[in-house]
Amino acid sequence: MKNDSGFTLIEMLVVLLIITVLLIIALPNITENNNTIRTKGCEAFTLTAEAQVEAYYMKNGTFPATLDILEEEGYLKQATCPNGDTPAYDSSTGAITADVTQP
């Protein structure tokens, strides 16, 4: 008796075709939402950084001169938004602003 278990070449090609069609449908949607995700990430970073500026102020009695100081002292993991933009920081008021408009 002959054991004919396994997939034929045609079955494998059909599976690859189905996977390709699904990728063609899904990839444009993922890339469109990538900008939205990065924008929301920058908004969240701004809020977190503002809270850390306040924590630094409560501990030291002054606002940090730059956001890099917060990074050096462990208040923040990074001093830039996830999309690479550097937010504007006013050391006299502790205000942080970032351009979060979508490209």
Results as ranks from 00 to 15, higher is better:
Met1Ala: 11
Met1Pro: 04
Lys2Asn: 14
Lys2Ile: 15
Lys2Trp: 13
Asp4Gln: 02
Asp4Thr: 07
Asp4Trp: 05
Ser5Gly: 11
Ser5Cys: 11
Gly6Tyr: 09
Gly6Cys: 05
Phe7Cys: 00
Leu9Lys: 10
Ile10Val: 15
Ile10Met: 09
Ile10Gly: 08
Glu11Phe: 10
Met12Tyr: 09
Leu13Gly: 03
Val14Glu: 02
Val14Gln: 02
Val14Arg: 05
Leu16Lys: 05
Leu17Met: 14
Leu17Gln: 01
Ile18Phe: 10
Ile19Thr: 04
Ile19Val: 14
Thr20Ile: 10
Val21Asn: 03
Val21Ala: 09
Leu22Tyr: 02
Leu23Arg: 06
Leu23Thr: 12
Ile24Arg: 13
Ala26Thr: 14
Leu27Trp: 12
Leu27Asn: 05
Leu27Ala: 14
Pro28His: 15
Asn29Val: 15
Ile30Cys: 12
Ile30Asn: 07
Thr31Phe: 15
Thr31Val: 14
Glu32Val: 13
Glu32Cys: 08
Glu32Gln: 13
Asn33Pro: 04
Asn33Thr: 11
Asn34Ala: 11
Asn34Glu: 14
Asn34Ile: 12
Asn35Trp: 08
Asn35Asp: 15
Thr36Leu: 03
Thr36Glu: 10
Thr36Asn: 06
Thr36Trp: 02
Ile37Gln: 08
Ile37Thr: 00
Arg38Thr: 07
Thr39Ser: 04
Thr39Pro: 00
Thr39Gly: 02
Gly41Ile: 03
Gly41Ala: 07
Cys42Tyr: 01
Cys42Thr: 01
Cys42Arg: 03
Cys42Val: 02
Glu43Leu: 02
Phe45Gly: 00
Leu47His: 08
Leu47Trp: 09
Leu47Thr: 06
Thr48His: 11
Thr48Asn: 10
Thr48Phe: 09
Thr48Trp: 10
Ala49Thr: 04
Glu50Leu: 12
Glu50Pro: 05
Ala51Lys: 13
Ala51His: 14
Gln52Thr: 08
Gln52Ser: 02
Val53Cys: 07
Val53Trp: 08
Val53Gly: 05
Glu54Cys: 01
Ala55Arg: 04
Tyr56His: 07
Tyr56Ile: 06
Tyr57Cys: 00
Tyr57Asn: 05
Met58Ser: 09
Met58Ala: 05
Met58Gln: 12
Asn60Thr: 11
Asn60Val: 06
Gly61Glu: 01
Gly61Trp: 09
Thr62Ile: 12
Phe63Gly: 00
Ala65Thr: 14
Thr66Val: 09
Thr66Tyr: 09
Leu67Lys: 01
Asp68Arg: 07
Asp68Lys: 07
Asp68Cys: 01
Asp68Gln: 13
Ile69Cys: 01
Leu70Gln: 01
Glu71Lys: 10
Glu72Arg: 00
Gly74Glu: 06
Tyr75Met: 03
Tyr75Ile: 05
Leu76Glu: 04
Gln78Gly: 07
Ala79Pro: 05
Ala79Gly: 06
Thr80Leu: 12
Thr80Ser: 12
Cys81Asp: 01
Cys81Glu: 06
Pro82Ser: 14
Pro82Asp: 10
Pro82Gln: 14
Pro82Cys: 13
Pro82Trp: 11
Asn83Phe: 11
Gly84Glu: 00
Gly84Met: 08
Asp85Val: 09
Pro87Thr: 08
Ala88Gly: 14
Ala88Arg: 07
Ala88Val: 15
Ala88Glu: 15
Asp90Tyr: 12
Ser91Cys: 11
Ser92Ile: 05
Ser92His: 05
Ser92Met: 07
Thr93Trp: 11
Gly94Asp: 07
Ala95Gln: 12
Ala98Ser: 11
Asp99Cys: 06
Val100Gly: 03
Val100Tyr: 00
Thr101Gln: 08
Gln102Thr: 15
Pro103His: 03
Pro103Glu: 04
Pro103Ala: 06
